[in-house]
Nucleic acid binder design. Structure first.
Lengths: 188, 188
DNA sequence: CCAAAAAGAATGAATATTCATTTATATTTG
DNA sequence: CAAATATAAATGAATATTCATTCTTTTTGG
């Protein structure tokens, strides 16, 4: 089961969802094709379970050392570090999670959405607005300004180059510089 | 040829790259499978040409009414409006372009990268830094702060809902509010 | 009437899934 | 405690279908 998940994730990252076949997967995971169907109803079920598992792993990491009652700048910094660390240390897992968002399977995975995680994030934001640590704005605007730049930087890092093909490596300094720009945007 | 491109793009958006087969594509486009192979060497070639074409269309739209010699705030606003308009008016094309970035085909498409577009963007940025309209920072940091929030907001809009499943529609006001936050981050 | 464009049928390989069996593990019985 | 039996886990081979691609034939515009 663990072997199946690991092989599936690696195959998807290397060859895309169109490169994942159940027989190849079985071979790579060192099991018989039939064995996969003991654990999973079908291919779709396997992918949905894999996605669920990866999302949970990721959310758990994002929340490490985080408390929604933290002051805004501190809490945001903790999240930036957690998110960046996870994706840089596990590029395949990050790639899979992002790629999945463009897949038709995504809508079938929505029901699996963890409401607890979401609640914590909302609590953090509304509390920050109340305390005048954050300009008043819709949650979606907040999230986009607060985290999209981070994900984009990490994507550059994973590609190992920028749009010109020049080499690019994300340093800790650069990450912190970007975070401070984001804070400048968000704070009153 | 046009019909083939359109059908391919629609199929990929609806069913993912794994849902695109040459026979289904031929049927949808109203041609024989053999006809596709008159215009394209093989499936990969077809996808690469489709991507190239979509990228060019998109870049052309982004540059409409834009001049790198514009002052920073104006130029950024033009780009925001162009980018947002294109993706909102053509959600499938936007989805395809973003999805493609997670595909193994991406690296084979890199050679096709338009150096002219890139050059204009760099000119705009370095000129803005010279003129003290923009904090000094690596290009990648700039791009991530300047545009990633926009793309993320538009993604929310396309999904039609936020992470909680509540309804979400991106208004022009919200877009401009986000742009002003981004400008606050980027300007000295 | 010919050359280019398109068609349809055909090919072999690969696909998801299932079937009948075997192997290993636990539970019950004498 | 050992033999018998039930339960579960895993297998390799087989199924029908779909896949990318090509071959031969037909259509069509100049």
């Amino acid at each position: 089961m663990e072997a199946i998940f690991q092989s599936a994730l690696a195959m998807i990252v290397e060859e895309g969802f169109e490169g994942l076949s159940m027989q190849k997967l079985a071979k790579t995971a060192g099991v018989s094709p039939a064995t996969i169907y003991i654990y999973f109803k079908d291919k779709e079920d396997m992918l949905l379970q894999l996605h669920k598992r990866e999302k949970e792993r990721y959310f758990a990491c994002v929340l490490e050392g985080f408390d929604p009652e933290m002051d805004f700048a501190t809490g945001l910094a903790v999240q930036w570090k957690n998110r960046a660390r996870y994706i840089i240390d596990h590029p395949d897992r990050g790639h899979f999670l992002e790629h999945f968002n463009f897949t038709p399977l995504l809508c079938k995975s929505m029901k699996t959405q963890n409401p607890k995680f979401s609640a914590i994030m909302h609590r953090f934001v509304s509390k920050a607005i109340e305390n005048n640590e954050l300009v008043t704005m819709p949650f979606e605007v907040y999230w986009s300004v607060a985290f999209a730049p981070l994900y984009n930087l990490v994507r550059y890092h994973k590609a190992g180059m920028n749009l010109n093909g020049e080499k690019f490596e994300l340093t800790d300094t650069m990450l912190m510089q970007t975070l401070s720009l984001v804070l400048k945007a968000l704070r009153p």
